[in-house]
């Protein structure tokens, strides 16, 4: 065993966290149950937190610690709890129907991964940060979450997809520029929280109107 040096280890850890984030994005894409979906989302938040903390340590950027804590509180604790309560209240602990079957979705997902890595390749060459490897992964997980929103039929998974998309964006931000300015991050976090509340209110309204959370019913809302 070679001489122990923590810096490369932290670097490897960062790649590992990014890959785990991607893995969870794929897991969410292939998951049918809402409850598991929420758990996966919480796990993704936790890994994001760890990854941000790790890069904070690695790059000696103290403000990243704050955003790690912020992520932990909002994405690992508050949002999953809210979602939990939401689905209990709405009584929607059902299997999620998908529009396209799951292997096909995954296949498209692989295509997206290749695509986003190609996209990130020239940018990564210019980027001087040590985190450039993860940019492609971050982009891929953004696209995957986007795809999850497209392929789901029910409103709740779509919202989870939206939140997961935000996770990917966060990772992209830390890997490309060592995080956004603190003000922006705080603002985004607040936005997500407020967005969550609004989504919750919308869910109740949608269900009251259509007796279901199936977004297909929204197709009626067009001009005849």
């Amino acid at each position: 065993m070679s001489h122990w040096n923590p810096a490369p280890f932290a670097q490897q850890l960062l790649d590992l966290f990014a890959s785990l984030l991607l893995l969870i994005a794929f897991a969410m894409l292939s998951q049918r149950r809402i409850l598991t979906l929420i758990h996966l989302f919480a796990w993704q938040g936790l890994i994001l937190t760890l990854s941000i903390a790790d890069s904070a340590w690695l790059t000696h950027q103290p403000h990243l610690y704050y955003s790690a804590v912020l992520t932990l509180i909002i994405k690992v604790l508050i949002l999953p709890l809210l979602l939990h309560r939401l689905i209990r209240r709405l009584d929607v602990v059902w299997d999620v129907e998908t529009l396209i079957n799951i292997p096909t979705t995954m296949l498209v997902g692989i295509g997206l991964v290749v695509f986003s890595f190609n996209l990130a390749l020239p940018i990564a060459h210019f980027s001087s940060t040590i985190l450039r490897n993860t940019l492609g992964i971050a982009l891929a997980s953004v696209l995957l979450s986007f795809m999850m929103m497209i392929t789901r039929r029910k409103a709740v998974p779509q919202v989870i997809g939206f939140l997961a998309l935000e996770n990917g964006l966060f990772l992209a931000a830390t890997s490309a520029t060592y995080g956004m300015p603190m003000v922006v991050e705080l603002g985004v976090a607040l936005d997500v929280l407020v967005g969550m509340f609004i989504f919750g209110i919308f869910f109740f309204q949608i269900r009251e109107t259509f007796d279901s959370l199936d977004i297909r019913h929204m197709e009626k809302l067009k001009e005849e």
């Binding site: 065993m1 070679s2 280890f9 490897q12 850890l13 790649d15 590992l16 990014a18 890959s19 785990l20 893995l23």
Partner: peptide
């Protein structure tokens, strides 16, 4: 010792 993301 090395962490390989692909191995995960």
């Amino acid at each position: 010792f090395y962490l390989y993301p692909s191995l995960a």
